[in-house]
Nucleic acid binder design. Structure first.
Lengths: 137, 137
DNA sequence: ATGTAAATGCATATTATTCGCATCTTGTCT
DNA sequence: AGACAAGATGCGAATAATATGCATTTACAT
């Protein structure tokens, strides 16, 4: 029995599919697309229709449980658990490898914005370029 | 005769449609979607098929003339002229108003990343929250 | 245990974006 | 200037991600 199953978010009906999506996101080390999640579910025995996964992700998004991003403006959104700590990614233009950045350059910047008539709820930052392996073309 | 028409980018065949897309982007104060551009073309007399606009934007993107972004993970990409100076946006969650940020918090941060086996080509930063008018719900 | 509101399975719709191909333009070479 | 080749556009149709509708099933409060 995982921690998730003990701390089920309040106000959300508990179903096999939702538990499964949540634990897949828990274990993921990088953001996953709806289809990624769907196929991972297939492997672990539980299955869910793709549209159901979308509906679950939409719910989780509204509840603030997951974050949705469009990495490198690809045509597919990816989702990750909202761990309530900053995490940003550096994406390699060539091999699409995703590196995680540990510190956030925004921390000192955001408060300044607050003075300027904008109440900041969050931000996305994406760095793109070439990773170590792809540096030399 | 506008400045654009005098400084046409090299290596790109000059057509009515391309000139039109470029001057619409020149005059735009915020990023535009392909459809936005298409309808603006209709108004100014020139017209172009939507697929043509997409093809033009794709070309401009490859040539580094425009930047493509997905604001607030909407399902529609928006394009803006690459003015070769940093510009980031703060997007209001409620009314989707877009505020332009003049300074970039990344400037001091990026060189640090360079040391860490990643060659940075560029970045996207998006701040979301509530603007002045929407602050009080 | 039962009833009800809500979730899922499944198929089908929607929407942004891309592709194919015939026709038309642009820029080049003479 | 005229003609040609490379490439651009018009237009329609294809693709792919995501959303929706509805009948059936499930979770949970009573």
């Amino acid at each position: 029995m995982t921690e998730i199953q003990n701390n089920w978010p309040t106000g959300i009906k508990r179903t096999k599919q939702r538990e499964s999506v949540l634990s897949i996101l828990e274990e993921a080390e990088k953001p996953l697309s709806a289809m990624d999640i769907c196929s991972k579910m297939g492997k672990s025995g539980d299955t869910a229709w793709l549209s159901t996964v979308y509906r679950i992700l939409e719910l989780f998004l509204k509840k603030g449980i997951v974050l949705k991003t469009n990495i490198m403006n690809s045509d597919m959104a990816v989702y990750e658990l909202n761990r309530f700590k900053h995490k940003h990614y550096a994406v390699c233009i060539n091999c699409h490898k995703i590196l995680t950045m540990d510190n956030c350059p925004m921390e000192k910047f955001i408060p300044k914005l607050e003075d300027e008539d904008f109440y900041v709820m969050g931000h996305n930052l994406e760095i793109f370029g070439f990773c170590k392996d792809c540096k030399s073309h």
